[in-house]
């Protein structure tokens, strides 16, 4: 079975290193092997399990997080390379008790079925809207093209992102 903590030798077997990771604006001191993937450190060392392990092969996007605002497949990104950078995960999306518009609209549109792709989908969508507040449907599909969903057929997800774009756009008054 694939496992993000799987030890492969080399840097995975090298002596541990200590550093600090900033995740959702909170600093976490961690001690990991130099070859540890960001996904494994988020889930197993820091305890933020919202980010999912799907393929562990950089294909499915379930592990998508943002590093300095850009989407990154955390299964294949070395955690040590994220030190000094701002990591954002799905846990940081909601504002205390209120869901982020992307989360609420995804639920409303039926864009969540089994839910396993949802955290990664949300992070890709957020990065897209941060850099392009008014994307076309094509741009939404390209923005989400690294995220696989086996349930929804994508249309409801694209619709939710479009609605979120409209809602966020009007709420910022731009």
């Amino acid at each position: 079975m694939s496992d993000a903590t799987h030890q492969e030798g080399g840097a995975d077997a090298a002596r541990p290193i200590s550093y600090t990771l900033s995740v959702n604006e909170i600093n976490y001191p961690v001690t990991t092997s130099p070859g540890s993937a960001l996904l494994a450190v988020l889930r197993n060392d820091i305890g933020l399990t919202g980010t999912k392990e799907g393929c562990d092969d950089c294909e499915c996007g379930a592990c998508m997080v943002l590093v300095d605002g850009q989407p990154v497949n955390s299964c294949s990104y070395l955690a040590a390379q994220a030190q000094g950078r701002a990591v954002s995960t799905v846990e940081g999306l909601a504002d205390s008790s209120d869901l982020h518009p992307l989360q609420q609209l995804l639920l409303d549109a039926g864009g969540v079925q089994c839910g396993f792709c949802t955290p990664g989908m949300l992070m890709s969508a957020r990065a897209l809207l941060d850099r392009n507040p008014n994307p076309s449907d094509d741009e939404i599909r390209i923005g989400l093209s690294g995220n696989l969903c086996r349930c929804t057929g994508y249309d409801s997800i694209v619709a939710a992102v479009r609605q979120a774009a409209d809602q966020l756009d009007s709420s910022t008054g731009s």
Binding site: G10, A11, P34, D57, S76, L78, Q81
Partner: peptide, 25 residues
Amino acid sequence: PVAGGTDLVVGARQGKSPLPSNLVA
């Protein structure tokens, strides 16, 4: 050297070859 890791780290995860023992980002 490791830059984005999209070949190096993915290759290690796939078992092609283990990550090098010493890395410079």
